[in-house]
Design a protein around this nucleic acid. Structure first.
Length: 636
RNA sequence: GGGCCCAUAGUUCAGUUUGGAUAGAAUGGCUGCCUGCGGAGCAGUUGGUCGAGGGUUCAAGUCCCUCUGGGCCCGCCA
């Protein structure tokens, strides 16, 4: 795209001038200046040469710019993306872009192409695993951050020509599942919730899980019972497995309803029980022994254990002295499957149809005759979205993969900070908070905010607003619009911040539909749509060279960077960059809308040029907000 | 005890990867803008010793060191 061409031309220009002055090649930076009056690109090369040349930055900059101007004189007939170069007294060399030229290229490129896909992946196969919530409770807002990050990355990769498969790992045989089994089997909780209105996942998480954990302290025999159940689960006791499977699949289906509500989708569910049954762990264990990746300790405190000597983390026990696998061990076969060190021997069956009509598959241990050997594994790259408390373990897993065939760079842990409840929200929910700024959530203690509860509250708020603004909207339209505004508000608020940082969740702030929010972006999009609709134009042939207002230039410049923004997002795995780009575009558009007449412009040609600009903005905005999971609404 | 992350306006956050020009948004408070293309908008105003101290540099919110405060991880738990 054109802005890249501008950058590379500026880069060439500086290099050319340096060469002319016989200055040895310095590495310099071209960055976007802090203020608009300094142009569109600044070069710091003069600062770097002060020592070498014993001259002030401004003098050096002037010398270089002089060279460029002489060159341009001899080459004045070729078209340039640079419209001016100035040596600023500060020492910067400031480039101004030829926005008339860039505008024409960019607008016509956007308008002419139905498919604005940036081909970054070139068909590369990528696996992304996200959500992976234990199937014993309903999702809380913390899980939603995982879903939003994972699904956003999925959407971006998919639309940049990656062959993406989305995985959701279901730990259906772990401790947390054993906890609720204790509730059903020993505390006699009915399998059908007494209250018909409660979702099954909420019932398990809010009533059984919390209650059981509460009772462990009072009744130690219950802990023993759980231990027994866990052992049976891990060893594949048919009766327990079958009961557990009945419970977990009911919970899972309810959890998926919440994820689908968030407009996430998946390709494959992998059950831990299937990994156990298929003996994948045994195979992994054998290979690790054979290849001397793990060794058996014969003396000391870890005598009898199989351990992995990590370079960074020291000795890590993989198999206990009683022969059972530790927590980290269970993740190894799955990771090996992803990168292809272990062969995929699973069969697959249809689990459910999803909201977007795609098929959700699941691994199966049933011996099916149908040809359901799908190619989910392996992938060239695999991304696992897990919160940053697992960073240490994930590092070790990478190290172990590396021992197999140095392919650990194909396995990436995408870490993010946990979601905390703001002091205010914690208080509102009746949770104690001793003057802290925020409160950790805990499913076990019942300190969390249910995801559907938040979405329902957001929905009611959006509905209120929608009715206020559109008195004529009713029924299904009203419901759909309100829901889509609610989801968009939620997804945007989960994605717009830095992944590293903890996310403070405040119920009242998250209900805001103004300012830097999902609905703000939807509103800008809806405005674009209305303008296009009212203009009655369906072929856009406006002359972009007529657009010369600074506001229009800013829009053109921003539009010309859309591909760069997508590349940056993928390179750095920073979904917030997409959110930021979309927000800036919407802000610029709103200003444009406010200050310059579009349909009302009396100069017909200028009006058409502006309508074309609006259409270009609309197309790009749609792509970007859709990445984040914001639903583009033509009216709201 | 060891390791990782964080600290910027009353509040929630950008900006730190790659040092650069007057540190930006949003929100809150105050004030303007619809007989104008949709006011979920736009504009103005208020609000900052960038946690503290030292160092490197022509130049530090950004790099280095020390310290303080907060969080997380470090089990033959999961």
């Amino acid at each position: 795209m054109s802005f890249e061409k501008f950058i590379s031309e500026a880069n060439e220009a500086v290099k050319f001038s340096l060469k002319k002055l016989e200055i040895k090649n310095e590495t310099f930076n071209l960055t976007e200046p802090t203020r608009e009056e300094f142009g569109d690109l600044s070069c710091n090369v003069a600062f770097l040469l002060t020592k070498q040349l014993q001259k002030s930055p401004h003098v050096i900059a002037s010398m270089l710019v002089e060279q460029y101007h002489q060159f341009r004189k001899t080459d004045s007939n070729s078209q340039s993306y640079i419209s001016s170069v100035v040596a600023h007294e500060s020492g910067y060399i400031n480039f101004e872009a030829n926005l008339a030229l860039i505008g024409e290229e960019v607008i016509s490129h956007i308008l002419k192409n139905d498919n604005l896909r940036v081909d970054i992946g070139k068909g590369k196969k990528v696996i992304i695993e996200h959500t992976s919530v234990n199937p014993n409770k309903a999702l809380h807002v913390g899980h939603l951050r995982n879903v939003a990050i994972g699904d956003t990355i999925y959407r971006i990769l998919r639309d940049t020509n990656h062959d993406v498969k989305v995985l959701n790992y279901v730990d259906d045989s772990g401790l947390q599942v054993a906890d609720i089994l204790v509730g059903f089997l020993f505390l006699k909780f009915p399998v059908t919730p007494p209250n018909n209105n409660i979702k099954f996942d909420t019932y398990c998480g809010n009533e059984i899980y919390v209650k059981v954990n509460d009772l462990y302290e009072k009744d130690p025999t219950l802990v023993e019972k759980r231990k027994l159940l866990l052992k049976k689960l891990e060893q594949g006791d048919p009766e327990i497995i079958s009961f557990a499977s009945e419970i977990t699949s009911k919970v899972l289906k309810d959890q998926l309803r919440t994820c689908w509500r968030m407009k996430a989708r998946y390709d494959l569910l992998n059950f831990e029980s299937h990994i156990i049954i298929s003996k994948l762990w045994e195979k992994t264990f054998e290979r690790m022994r054979n290849e001397n990746i793990i060794i058996k300790e014969t003396e000391g405190e870890n005598a009898g254990c199989w351990v992995f000597g990590s370079d960074v983390e020291g000795i890590k026990i993989i198999v206990r002295s009683d022969g059972t696998a530790t927590y980290i061990a269970k993740d190894i076969p799955y990771a090996l499957l992803k990168v292809g060190t272990l062969e995929d021997q699973f069969r697959y069956q249809v689990f459910l149809k999803q909201w977007d009509n795609t098929t959700l598959w699941s691994s199966t241990t049933d011996d099916l005759n149908e040809a359901n050997q799908l190619n989910f594994f392996p992938a060239e790259d695999s991304i696992t979205v897990i919160d940053n408390r697992q960073t240490r373990l994930q590092k070790i897993i990478k190290e172990i993969l590396n021992k197999f065939e140095s392919n650990s760079n194909r396995y990436m842990h995408l870490a993010y900070g946990p979601v905390l409840l703001s002091n205010r929200t914690a208080k509102d929910l009746g949770m104690e908070s001793e003057n802290q700024k925020s409160v950790q959530m805990s499913g076990r203690k019942g300190v969390f905010v249910d995801a559907d509860f938040v979405l329902d509250t957001l929905y009611r708020k959006a509905r209120e607003e929608t009715i206020k603004r559109n008195p004529d909207i009713t029924g299904k339209d009203l419901e759909r619009t309100s829901e889509e505004i609610a989801i968009s508000a939620m997804r945007y608020s989960l994605i717009k911040n830095d992944l590293d940082k903890e996310l403070k969740f405040d119920m009242i702030d998250s209900l805001s539909l103004d300012g830097n929010s999902g609905p703000y972006l939807q509103y800008a999009y809806a405005r674009c749509c209305r303008l296009i609709e009212k203009s009655n134009i369906n072929s856009f042939s406006g002359d972009a060279s007529l657009l010369s207002d600074p506001i229009e230039y800013r829009l053109i410049k921003h539009l010309s960077k859309y591909a760069l923004s997508i590349e940056d997002t993928i390179k750095n795995m920073e979904p917030k960059l997409i959110a930021l780009y979309a927000y800036e575009l919407a802000t610029m558009f709103n200003l444009f809308y406010e200050k310059l007449p579009i349909l009302k412009e009396s100069d017909v040609e200028l009006s058409q040029a502006r309508i074309s600009l609006v259409e270009a903005i609309r197309k790009i905005l749609k792509i970007f907000i859709s990445f984040v999971g914001i639903i583009p609404l033509e009216r709201m």
